[in-house]
Amino acid sequence: MKPLHEIRFTLNGEPREFLVSPDDKLLEVLRREGLTGAKHGCGTGSCGACTVILDGRAVYACLLYAFQAEGRSVETIEGIGGFDHPHPIQKALVEGGAVQCGFCTPGMVLSAKALLAGNPHPSDEELKVHMDGNLCRCTGYEKIEAALRRVIAAGGAR
């Protein structure tokens, strides 16, 4: 058994410590902590269901080793909103009928949040480019895009 190493990173705004194996992926560490909003979809960095925000940028937690988060800031879907206080993006997707099975939704929300934090008014092309790493098998994407456009128009991406 490989020795465990202590790593520290800020998780949803709180400084945290974790004991990890060198091989542990960030996704495994998060889900072990009960943060199961990031999903194991493809496991190969293609589908986006595992998306989290690392230092403000959307990343695939299934590809990143946990140690790559050392000293950095990680946001998961649990940290940005919930049933009682949904994030504007979550609210828009639900109200816009853009959630069917919901498996891709956390990743979609986080990718959109990361984009809009840095670029509150993306063009259509920029939105497509920055969301190109999140796949949805249910909705056909149009309602997701429409919901995001409403968030952008309302200026309520934060």
Partner: peptide, 12 residues
């Protein structure tokens, strides 16, 4: 860069 993989990959 624009045509390489996806945004989550391009970010790292």
């Amino acid at each position: 860069a624009r045509h390489t993989s996806t945004q989550q990959i391009r970010n790292v």
